[in-house]
């Protein structure tokens, strides 16, 4: 890379943070929906939440927290010159993303086989509060799942840039920003897990 290329690290990171703020407000809107309907249908939210399996939610919490650790360490590894360790950790993160989605697949499949999915006849026979709970649940975790897939693709692209030397120990801001996006995915789940899976177990 030529030394004359202007690099604004602060600007690049700040731009990423501004984008993340819009993401926080996007999911914030969904959490507000949850809060408003929780205050309207507290009993139905508890009985609907009890139908979610804590093992799926808890397992995916462990997977995401660990993947966040991998990404955080990968940045330090790259800056210390341990490129191989960095790539291994990013590969591990993508594996965690895959594990998360496989979990989600089995979780949703079980729900679908019980006839619980948006617009299903069985769901529409439930009390209104439970219908709302499951609809918000599918929108929130579905949108979050899309973020997991996008995050994994961004990290895979970053790995290619590291392998080609475009991202390296002296020029790492792309990895930093990709990492910020991945941590956001983890942050959203930190709130999804207790609100949906643990609401009075």
């Amino acid at each position: 890379m030529s030394g004359h290329v202007h690099k604004d690290y602060i600007g690049a990171k700040f731009g990423m943070w501004l984008f993340l703020f819009t993401e926080v407000l996007l999911f914030g809107g969904l959490f507000i929906l949850y809060a408003v309907y929780l205050s309207r249908y507290p009993q139905e939210f508890i009985s609907a939440g009890a139908q979610l399996d804590v093992r799926f939610g808890g397992g995916n919490t462990l997977v995401l927290l660990t993947s966040s650790l991998f990404v955080a360490i990968s940045i330090t590894a790259l800056r210390r010159g341990s490129t191989k360790l960095c790539l291994g950790l990013l590969g591990g993160t993508i594996a965690c993303a895959a594990l998360f989605m496989i979990n989600k697949f089995f979780e949703w499949s079980a729900k679908f086989s019980h006839g619980i999915y948006p617009g299903s006849e069985h769901l529409l026979e439930m009390p209104p509060g439970e219908i709302v709970f499951f609809n918000i649940y599918y929108v929130t975790t579905g949108l979050h799942g899309i973020h997991v897939i996008i995050g994994a693709l961004i990290l895979a692209w970053t790995m290619v840039l590291i392998m080609t030397g475009r991202v390296n120990a002296n020029d790492w801001v792309i990895l930093e920003n990709a990492g910020l996006y991945w941590h956001l995915v983890d942050l959203i789940w930190i709130f999804v897990f207790p609100l949906y899976y643990l609401i009075l177990h």
Partner: peptide
């Protein structure tokens, strides 16, 4: 109280992630 404890702990966790993991 369940929901407030859950939200309190989630806020603490996100504080850790933002402060340290996200630098």
């Amino acid at each position: 109280m369940n929901i407030w404890v859950a939200l309190g702990i989630a806020t603490l966790k996100s504080g850790l992630v933002i402060a340290i993991f996200m630098h």
